[in-house]
């Protein structure tokens, strides 16, 4: 836990050591916040003022600029968690544990946001808040998996031992997600052959695509910033816990 006396270590050790990680990555926070804010200002301006209304959906199409980035993050965060899980299982990297734990509630939040904005968008477009369409349904299942992972983290007393177990479950989930997606699509087409709404990415005009991409980057930057803060908090929480335990032991001895 000493930050000093480690100047000659490799970058790998510098990342692996929780105290060192906090020390050097704290400097990244301010630039990350600035980048996030700048991207959001630009993206929101483009989304509200520089992009056209949809000829069918009108202004409600602008929900897309929040919906699509959060939907992207719902999957991206799971990807981050899976990579961290491999880091935990294969290299026993302590920061991978922390990254996995910090990402789970963020992933759940972004997934919930994607569902919420999807529902808001669905009301004027489909005439109902919830439609059992393939995309929405698999996102819902993903949210349930996130909830399961958060609940699993909370169920363990010893967070160090929890990490490897949660990592196993995260990877089982990662293998399962494509299967879930496939089966839900199959199920959705079985029950309602006519596709309700489809976002045809490449055919969208640039005036929509540009703000969309900026917003995707803005939300991703927001996630990275929050993730880093979450990791710092987790490192500190662990340090407090281990100090408390050491204190209690000294009291017992």
């Amino acid at each position: 836990m000493n930050v000093e006396n480690t100047s000659k270590q490799s970058w790998w050790t510098r990342i692996a050591h929780p105290g060192q990680f906090v020390a050097w990555s704290r400097r990244l926070l301010v630039p990350l916040w600035i980048a996030t804010a700048a991207l959001f200002v630009l993206g929101l301006w483009l989304a509200f003022f520089a992009s056209p209304e949809d000829y069918q959906m009108g202004d409600t199409v602008r929900i897309m600029y929040v919906h699509v980035p959060t939907a992207w993050l719902s999957q991206f965060v799971y990807g981050v968690m899976s990579v961290s899980a491999i880091g935990t299982l294969v290299w026993r990297h302590p920061m991978a544990d922390v990254s996995m734990k910090a990402a789970a509630p963020l992933g759940a939040t972004f997934t919930a946001l994607a569902l919420y904005t999807g529902a808001l968008w669905g009301r004027p477009t489909w005439g109902t808040f919830w439609e059992w369409d393939g995309r929405m349904t698999s996102t819902l299942v993903l949210l349930l998996i996130y909830f399961g992972i958060v609940a699993l983290w909370r169920a363990f007393d010893d967070q160090l031992r929890a990490a490897r177990i949660v990592a196993v479950f995260t990877l089982v989930g990662a293998v399962n997600i494509p299967i879930i997606k496939f089966s839900v699509d199959w199920w959705a087409t079985l029950h309602q052959p006519a596709s309700v709404f489809r976002l045809d990415g490449p055919t969208m005009p640039g005036s929509i695509l540009t703000p969309l991409f900026v917003m995707v980057f803005a939300f991703t930057a927001l996630f990275l910033t929050l993730h880093l803060i979450g990791m710092h908090t987790e490192v500190r929480r662990r340090r407090v816990m281990s100090l408390e335990r050491r204190l209690a032991q000294r009291g017992a001895a």
Binding site: I145, L152, I180, F182
Partner: peptide
């Protein structure tokens, strides 16, 4: 934990 993962089997 298992319920969401088992949805394909249910479907």
């Amino acid at each position: 934990l298992i319920l969401p993962l088992a949805i394909p089997l249910l479907i």
